[in-house]
Design a protein around this nucleic acid. Structure first.
Lengths: 216, 216
DNA sequence: TACAAGATACCGACTAGTTGGTATGTAAGA
DNA sequence: TCTTACATACCAACTAGTCGGTATCTTGTA
């Protein structure tokens, strides 16, 4: 009935991006952003789509479920975090920053949106097995990267291998715990006190590994 | 139309509890349970009502919003946690448990559902100002309780007041960080290693305060 | 170079279900 | 009879995910 007139005149052809990589990147970036802004609880699809400027169809074309997107965003977060720490380690080893600067910046990295956002996901996985299954592997990787970061940056003279490992595990525990507390309360004094204590408790016995071995 | 026949015959008068305190307690208990089971994300009203055996109307009669209930449940969790720690402190001081036992049990308390559940809420508040406003005060209290717990249990000879405070803050950071990591991975070895390290890093310089001063 | 055929990227209306919260009514106790 | 403590039906907003269809790119053929 009324076929011709009914044929919708809103034929706005809609230019499409048609760039897989960019679309996926935009989705992941938006998911990260939303995760940081809204936390794990309020992380829903529509705002991500709006922020990314991508349609629902495109999202589900590239990711089978929302959780797959979240997991992908999570991996990106962890990669960023690893990169950030790695750069700090190098800076310390090449001498462009000092010990205290190093500690402060590592602390800041842990208390940053990047890491706190990842905590959101970590907590989320506790009750969501599907998300957890997707993320699990990445967490394993993260702990490996983390251990390597400390071991590459510092020597612990007189420590056995397992002993040293455990030392850095405790360092990570301190940073994690402090970062978590910082969600609630973070003042310059707390920050300063933490960094001082951390240096004393963790790095007192540690020797910085020189960056270029042939230079030592 | 058909007024009489339409008048639903499922007039089961439904016996009512009519016990304010019990109803509220049931709601809070159910909320706690759901929080532990489902985490902050999946924490919705209907399952809480089912578990508590309470109607929607009753919930919103006693709590203006869902967040008020969550906050109340959160406070209960923290109270339990405080009580649990307090008991451990006393047990140590009266000599019924040893140092290592004490450390293990404090660790276990932190890694228990109680504390991990509270972490869920803590993370949730990051992006939910309304919930945060309700919970904030309780968190302040918690930190006070926590500080008191350590100070009441141990003496730190040679430490200044601020120095001692900071020492216990770091102890809490360690426990928090470890508890958080335990969401993902928790093995007997990790537990043992943590407890050993904790005792060494935190309690090496600490002296247990005797329980009854007139006995010292 | 031209054009057809097929694959891939994408769009947005729609569905089925859930959410927190409310309006209205009713039973119990003072 | 009046208040408090509850119960139930309902609502608007939002949820993740699907589906039919469309735009664009790629590749094979002439």
């Amino acid at each position: 009935m009324a076929a011709d007139t009914n044929s919708i005149d809103k034929r706005t052809p809609v230019t499409r991006r048609r760039d897989k990589d960019k679309t996926i990147a935009a989705l992941k970036r938006a998911a990260r952003q939303q995760l940081i802004l809204e936390g794990g609880t309020g992380l829903s699809i529509q705002p991500i789509l709006n922020m990314a400027g991508v349609s629902r169809g495109a999202l589900f074309h590239h990711f089978p479920t929302k959780n797959h997107l979240i997991a992908a965003a999570f991996f990106d977060l962890m990669d960023d975090m690893a990169e950030r720490l790695g750069a700090l380690g190098e800076a310390l080893r090449e001498g462009s920053i000092g010990r205290s600067d190093f500690v402060e910046r590592v602390r800041d990295a842990y208390c940053s949106d990047i890491f706190v956002g990842s905590m959101d996901i970590a907590v989320k996985t506790r009750a969501e097995p599907e998300l957890r299954a997707l993320v699990d592997e990445g967490v394993d990787d993260w702990y490996v990267v983390l251990a390597a970061f400390w071991q590459d940056t510092f020597e612990l003279p007189g420590f056995g291998g397992a002993e040293a490992d455990q030392h850095w595990v405790m360092a990570s525990n301190l940073l994690r715990g402090h970062a978590f507390a910082s969600i609630y309360r973070s003042t310059p004094e707390i920050r300063r006190a933490f960094c001082a204590s951390f240096e004393e408790m963790i790095l007192a016995q540690a020797v910085i590994k020189p960056l270029s071995p042939q230079n030592g």
